[in-house]
Design a protein around this nucleic acid. Structure first.
Length: 556
RNA sequence: GAGGGUGUAGCUCAGCCGGUAGAGCAACGGACUUUUAAUCCGUAGGUCCCGGGUUCGAAUCCCGGCGCCCUCACCA
């Protein structure tokens, strides 16, 4: 900063305890930052800048303008925050009532929604109103309103929420329009909306302020509503098959049922360390022991791992268990769940060939079923039981083999050689047993577990077993930690109560887990898990004013 | 965790070789009774992510940091 000896006419922009920001309106001058203002200057600034009521302090000039209009609405005797208005129609339904020819007048309608666009032609105004079903144009003519009502109409801002009464008709240029006869003000928006044509593009803004994304990015709200319909259809599919829903604990003493790092937490009164669950499996199986023969849970699980296009630290899983079934029953059920989900997302008569980026997915059942060992032979080029040959292939792909259990190496080679080719949907069946400590072995071959995973374009969507119900084998498998796997990377975590439950007797059963978020991704052509989760995990937003606390707190 | 990209007005984006920060939309004031991202006239709006450095002079160059995005590696 250069010293300035001439007097300047300056205006206060803002101040912190460390700096004052002044704007100068003579030429060539920008904003000045004055470090460490003397205390008396700070005091003066505080006096002149702090309004009487903090709620009236506008965040910016846009908010100030809107607060002025809010006061003007109040001056008209109206409530800027609105009242009950639930006797209205969905815009999507109203659009269908529109007469086909311009000049004809359709039925009277009443809708409510947010103002998305405004087109002001003086005594004639057009608005676009959006609700969660659709958008529609409003036409408002000064001739149809009292002086008072017109004052309100002139106060409307983009983003405000209003209710309108009117008639549906086509405009002269052929757009479905409501000719408005009455406006009911419902909610003042104090925030400046994004650019009307380009919308908001900044990913961070869209993720942190998902409400903005839902309002202003085409397709986002629709996709999330579709998510809800898909989950409804999953419940419906299971209800038709006599499954019941259960809610099991999220706080676990042992984070079992999957190979993943858990989040830890603490219960104060009991002074007890707890984990957030990483799977639903072990509790639901206890319920089967208890006689709940067909049970499922759609629930959040938490895995303390990385974040990317297909992983969020908390995600939604369905796990279901069917007594007296096996993994074959689970394949049939998986197909039904996915086909019904696709119909819920795209309509009962829509094609089951869904778009996936520039590719497609054909969900017409039955899905292909391929044995793990056969796929291995086909893509790795050797038998998975031929350990020398497997080691050879592993070397070729630079897979670390030292100290690893042979089945772990087989699985590494499988992931490297086979999985990229699984465009699917394909059920990969019959896994090496050592990878599956919760799965029943094949009667004909104890080295093979009755497990399948469903792959679609490299995405693992479902995982199912014929459930292991032999308590002594289960206990052995819990004890046998696979070489080369850290404890948190293994599914084999000793859970004594679970073994105790199996000793009571769990019927033979099929169990299935589906990653709901990934299923939604596939059914809605969404390439990122963030597109199908309302609020994906983000780093903390740096709080305003945190600067000083942080700097002073870490003084060295 | 590694590499690449990016951060400028409320939003979408320009800003070249270092030389007084720009546009469109939105806002504010005005005109306009069938507009489609309406149009026209006018006004205001900036901690150029943060911190250092080089320089007479930095949005621009250099160093460090932070956020976000993409690719790769790990988990579903």
């Amino acid at each position: 900063m250069t010293a300035c000896a001439v007097p300047l006419q300056v205006r206060l922009k803002g101040a912190t305890s460390r700096s004052v920001f002044l704007t100068c309106h003579t030429r060539y001058c920008g904003t000045f930052r004055v470090a460490r203002p003397p205390l008396y200057v700070q005091a003066l600034l505080t006096m002149s800048e702090t309004p009487a009521t903090p709620t009236d302090r506008p965040a910016d000039r846009f908010e100030a303008a809107r607060i002025e209009k809010l006061h003007a609405i109040e001056a008209l005797g109206l409530d800027p925050w609105g009242q009950r208005f639930d006797d209205h129609q969905k815009i999507g339904e109203v659009r269908k009532l529109c007469p086909e020819a311009a000049g004809e007048v359709g039925p009277k309608v009443r809708v409510a929604g947010r103002i998305m666009l405004r087109n002001n032609k003086g005594k004639l105004k057009f608005f676009h109103l959006k609700d969660w079903s659709d958008r529609i144009q409003l036409m408002v003519s000064k001739a149809d309103f009292s002086e008072e009502q017109w004052k309100l109409i002139e106060l409307l801002d983009l983003g405000d929420i209003i209710g309108v009464d009117g008639v549906v008709k086509l405009s002269n240029s052929g757009e479905v329009t409501i000719g408005v006869s009455q406006v009911t003000f419902l909610t003042k928006s104090l925030a400046q909306p994004p650019e009307k044509f380009h919308g908001a593009k900044d990913m961070e803004l869209l993720l942190r302020q998902r409400y903005i994304d839902l309002i202003y990015t085409d397709g986002v709200l629709d996709r999330m509503l579709r998510r809800g319909r898909i989950i409804d259809s999953v419940r419906q599919t299971l209800k038709e098959r006599n499954f019941v829903e259960a809610e099991t604990p999220v706080l676990h003493a042992i984070a079992g049922g999957a190979a993943a790092r858990p989040f830890t937490t603490h219960h104060n009164a009991l002074d007890m360390e707890l984990y957030l669950r990483i799977a639903l499996e072990l509790h639901l199986k206890r319920l089967m022991v208890g006689g709940v023969e067909r049970v499922y849970e759609i629930g959040r699980v938490f895995r303390n791992e990385g974040v990317d296009a297909t992983h969020n630290p908390e995600f939604t899983m369905i796990e279901l268990y069917q007594a007296y079934g096996n993994y074959e029953s689970m394949m049939d059920l998986t197909e039904a769940i996915i086909v019904n989900g696709a119909r819920a997302a795209h309509g009962p008569n829509a094609s089951l060939v869904l778009p996936w980026g520039d590719k497609t997915i054909d969900f017409t059942p039955p899905f292909q079923r391929a044995k793990y060992g056969d796929l291995f032979r086909e893509h790795a080029g050797c038998d998975m039981h031929d350990s020398a040959a497997v080691l050879e292939v592993a070397k070729k792909y630079k897979i670390v083999t030292a100290g690893k259990h042979p089945d772990v190496i087989i699985n590494d080679v499988f992931e490297e050689t086979v999985e990229p080719h699984l465009s699917g949907p394909v059920f990969v069946i019959d896994y090496p047993a050592a990878m599956c400590p919760l799965t029943k072995r094949k009667q004909s071959d104890p080295a093979i577990a009755e497990r399948f995973e469903l792959f679609v374009h490299g995405l693992e969507v479902a995982n199912a077993y014929t459930e292991l119900n032999d308590p002594r084998l289960q206990e052995d498998l819990f004890r046998t930690q696979l070489q080369g796997l850290k404890e948190e990377d293994s599914m084999a975590k000793m859970d004594h109560d679970f073994v105790r439950a199996l000793k009571v007797g769990m019927p033979p059963a099929g169990g299935l887990g589906i990653g709901i978020d990934r299923l939604i991704m596939l059914l809605t052509n969404s390439r990122s898990i963030r597109d199908v989760i309302y609020f994906p995990l983000l780093r903390h937003e740096k709080a305003e004013g945190a600067e000083t606390a942080e700097e002073e707190g870490t003084a060295e």
